[in-house]
Write a protein that binds this DNA or RNA. Sequence first.
DNA 1: CGTTAGCTTGAATACCTTCAAAGTAGGTGG
DNA 2: CCACCTACTTTGAAGGTATTCAAGCTAACG
Lengths: 278, 278
Amino acid sequence: MLTSPMTDLRSNTVSLATPSPSGTSWQRQAKLWSSLKEVCDLLRISARIVNDDFQFQHMQFKAGQRIHTIGQPFDMLYIVNSGFLKTVMIDELGNEQVLGFPMKGDMFGIDGIHRKQYSTETVALTNCDVILVPFKTFSTLGRTHAELEAAIYGVMSRELVREQAMVGTLGSLSAEARVARFLVFLSERFAEMGYSGSQFNLRMTRQEIGNYLGLTLETVSRTFSAFNAIGMISVDQRAIMIHDLQSLRTLRRLPPSRLRNKTEAAKKRAAGQQMAVA
Amino acid sequence: MLTSPMTDLRSNTVSLATPSPSGTSWQRQAKLWSSLKEVCDLLRISARIVNDDFQFQHMQFKAGQRIHTIGQPFDMLYIVNSGFLKTVMIDELGNEQVLGFPMKGDMFGIDGIHRKQYSTETVALTNCDVILVPFKTFSTLGRTHAELEAAIYGVMSRELVREQAMVGTLGSLSAEARVARFLVFLSERFAEMGYSGSQFNLRMTRQEIGNYLGLTLETVSRTFSAFNAIGMISVDQRAIMIHDLQSLRTLRRLPPSRLRNKTEAAKKRAAGQQMAVA
DNA sequence: CGTTAGCTTGAATACCTTCAAAGTAGGTGG
DNA sequence: CCACCTACTTTGAAGGTATTCAAGCTAACG
């Protein structure tokens, strides 16, 4: 019961992750240009574009490739068309700090505007299709398309709010609550993208999740196991199945493990959730 | 002249029209309007403004007053001309999360663009003089002043980078390192403003600092005391004197207190432990 | 089929928080 | 002017949460 859907998901990842030397079909089939209108749709912007003649170039990246690096001169913004990435900062001691996991519809590279060079780097976690948006072109278009200009400001503001919410999370929540929210966040994003919000594969390592959430990889792993044990989710390596999204949403702190392991209530609840899903 | 535009803007600013009988001098002397050029200087923007005729209104707030509140319809950006404030988010349980301490030259309210209403609120910690920047006016001016437009994007990007740095801090640094960096940050800002960077008064409580840094007020207090004990700084309530800025900059972790306080005892105890183990 | 990167789990410990109590400063009213 | 009140700060002691270190395990890749 648990196995089949998960292997389905995994096979999905595998096919993406291993394009054989000959099997470059994903690249050949890839779309190479998008109109301004398509870009706006991707960004969930409601701009009525009249002069829809401008075309933005796409670029394909394989897992592990860098889209931009720290210190590189800024001239582009990027929009994810497909695939998963991570954006990281590197501190003075060379330690990575994961800042986010851009996915379909997200814009990244905004941090580069300020100093005219990127202060972060973004790496593809899977094969990706990314739209290149020359910043100068974009802002010029904004001057003649009022709605687009508003949208640019809106996207930048949205990123700021997202970052602020992250500060709130890191500053005040327990490890369990952070991991729970991370799962909710992923679930919602997958659902928005038209995939299942209740079962999906993580594209990032425990290390990356932990770093993002201000935790160690061991704590992330243990927390997944704990959620699994009480029936909130099922975990098998990267494969996640969410059984009780609402509990994840509102979770603040798990009851101590000594109370968790052998209580009738917990078992009942877990059983009930299984039933509800099935 | 003063009353009508302010009552137009915000109901909670009505109180400004009725200042207390005794302490009005700072208000009477306050500057009421700034040109676009002056605004750009304040933001540290190098825009060559030709048509320098537009005027932005100032507004004075007393300590404790709110400049904007959560959920309030967005139409203004704000720039601090003088004074100190705090920006806070409030989570679903009503807990405050301090996001920043805007001071001279900082812009706030940017978070409101995204959803057309503010997602944060900003409160004056001291009496303040704030410049009101109607967002629509600002972006319109940007269309004709290329450098101003670039500057607007730049300021928004700067805020994003600042928030990202904060995530990095919360995610990876010890309590001591966070407090140390906070002091360095304040020192640098005071120096930029033309005040002493080595001797200043905190404008915020331990509670607010702790909340901002993801720590409890007790931890902040203890950390100040520890820095004081080793001579890095002097603390007396809100008064701070920084003796060793460089150490604060690079501090990662303090040596354990038992090694700090009484070296002889520590050596003995360490020796004892060695013996016990051997 | 071995190697490697990633994941899980256990045990010990460090760090920070929580709870508590006492001290300090500033403002207000008697 | 002093006493009181409140908000803020300091410090101690106990306890819990997350980290660190370590070992074994899984899965993917050549």
